[in-house]
Design a protein around this nucleic acid. Structure first.
Length: 487
RNA sequence: GCCCCCGUCGUCUAGAGGCCCAGGACGCCACCCUUUCAAGGUGGAGAUCGCGGGUUCGAAUCCCGCCGGGGGCACCA
């Protein structure tokens, strides 16, 4: 059997990490089995429709490298792949259900429905449609129409019996039919509900496996009943567990921004996101954490997917991102970090950036960290730091000693025949002992003078990359500040 | 209120009756390396396998009950 899976987002906003995890599992399942991954847009709720939603969904998938075989933009044998363009299809299927006695027209007003629901809640009863219109006579229906009521189509749920379905992750799940109500299939605006549209499309598009969020599990019997009413063979269902925030509640805005594209803006690598998300509910074995895309495809399957919810471990994602950053080649990292740097300091000399990357690579966890870690290479004019920072605890009480040390350093560095870190270190390190300082103490003042910071890449490499002129200029500038402070 | 799902270190997980007085990873602590910060190395703390009953010579693994957590109950998906 061909594996055909679909990711069917509703364009109501930016895709969330939870959605993306579902898309990833869909994609991996398809790629592992050599099947097809289909993108379908479920825009049947025009009230919540967001214009940029479709683009955001596609953008997120593209960023993560989850390519689709059929979809709105690429077409396919079952086009169109946007539900709002398939209204005729749903109408026909609703009519069929109506004709065969598996559905009926309901003329109840939203107000009446609301009243019924409130009454039930007041009496501590499960809120359910009271089936007021289930057995209307043709005359009553004509009457309602004459009064201008626009009907919806409701499914005629069996009053008795039970519905059992196999969920790939949980086994058999059984629901008593009398706990279900007569849900709406077609709304009064002519649009289908999710229930009708997804079942019809999944069947027509020959979907073999439905992977979706756990929140759909309670709708499963409705969907199975629909398949039965149509006389169709249902696909395999796997309800993926929810991703939880630190407080064990469903991940949401309350826990910060978890839109997939937000992670791109923050400097996460797609390979880290993919690897991390794959491990949320799935594992390769008992010890492998870093798994590349090809290995994921080679090994991913539903039999190692867990049914229990997972708390989002942001620390681990950050660690993993740092790991993937360290794996990158110099050119690749320079290339990917460049936009983040330019966002802060403007156009960047790529050759200079290529020389910086090797000394910052193992010090950044996010691409955006490049701004903090290497920004000083791109600053013109004076550095912005406090005198206290320059002096540090060692020289706080004796700025003259710091000035003396810096003057020595300048004198030693100035005549250097070659400006590289080995010569610099050979010239400067011995100075410490002469001034009665530990090497680290001397290096500390130089570090702040040259970079404006106390945590930086290795000092002499940094000086080499910065270049002789700028380094000396900064050392002199620091010396000037010390002198002016002395007077 | 009703229905459904889930339950192994703080977190992600390995574990499909004896290999487990429970293994790996993140985080945390210590030490090593070291000019700062990282990275790396080594070691450590951390789980009465939610609780209580069974079944079995033997249970994290099977059964039942309870408790806890989560999800659903719209002309939203």
């Amino acid at each position: 059997m061909t594996v055909r899976v679909r990711y069917a987002p509703s364009p109501t906003g930016d895709p969330h990490l939870g959605n993306i995890r579902t898309a990833l599992f869909d994609w991996l399942l398809a790629r592992h089995h050599g099947g097809q991954f289909i993108l379908r847009i479920e825009d049947t709720d025009r009230a919540r429709y967001v214009e940029a939603g479709v683009q955001a969904q596609m953008e997120a998938l593209r960023w993560l490298g989850l390519d689709w075989d059929e979809g709105p933009d690429v077409g396919g044998p079952h086009a169109p792949y946007v539900q709002s363009e398939r209204l005729d299809i749903y109408r026909e299927h609703a009519d069929r259900l109506l004709d065969e006695g598996n559905a009926y027209l309901c003329f109840c007003s939203p107000e009446r429905l609301d009243e019924v629901r409130k009454d039930q809640q007041r009496r501590k009863l499960p809120p359910k449609y009271d089936r007021h219109c289930r057995d209307l006579t043709p005359a009553q229906r004509e009457d309602a129409r004459a009064q201008g009521a626009v009907p919806v189509v409701r499914f005629k749920t069996p009053l008795t019996g039970e519905t059992t379905t196999f969920d790939t992750l949980r086994g058999d799940v059984t629901f008593q039919n009398d706990t279900l109500d007569d849900f709406v299939l077609l709304k009064s605006d002519g649009f289908p509900t999710y229930h009708l549209a997804s079942i019809v499309d999944d069947h027509l598009m020959e979907i073999s496996h439905v992977l979706r969020g756990e929140e759909w599990l309670s709708s499963l019997p409705r969907h199975v009943l629909l398949y039965q009413a149509f006389g169709w063979q249902p696909p395999a269902f796997a309800h993926l567990s929810t991703i939880l925030g630190p407080d064990r509640a469903k991940l949401s805005k309350r826990h910060g921004a978890h839109a997939a594209l937000e992670y791109r803006r923050q400097g996460y690598l797609p390979e880290a996101i993919v690897n991390f998300l794959a491990l949320l509910g799935w594992s390769l074995d008992d010890h492998t954490e870093i798994i590349d895309r090809q290995t994921l495809i080679a090994h991913f399957d539903l039999d190692r997917v867990l049914p229990n919810p997972a708390v989002f471990n942001a620390d681990k994602l950050l660690w993993m991102n740092g790991f993937y950053i360290r794996q990158l080649s110099v050119d690749e990292l320079a290339d990917r970090a460049r936009p983040f740097l330019e966002e802060a300091v403007g156009p960047v000399d790529f050759e200079l950036l290529r020389r910086i990357v090797p000394i910052v690579q193992e010090r950044i966890k996010l691409l955006s960290d490049i701004k903090e870690m290497a920004g000083f290479f791109f600053t013109d004019g004076d550095l912005d730091y406090e005198l206290e920072t320059l002096l540090g605890p060692k020289f706080a009480a004796e700025p003259r000693a710091a000035a003396y040390a810096l003057a020595m350093v300048i004198a030693a560095a100035e005549p250097l025949p070659r400006w590289d870190h080995e010569l610099l270190e050979a010239a400067i390190r011995p100075l410490a002992a002469g001034a009665g300082l530990k090497a680290g103490e001397l290096f500390g003042v130089i570090r702040v003078a040259v970079t404006g910071k106390t945590a930086t890449p290795p000092l002499f490499e940094t000086m080499e990359v910065l270049g002789q002129d700028r380094t000396l200029a900064r050392l002199r500038s620091a010396l000037d500040r010390l002198h002016s402070r002395a007077h």
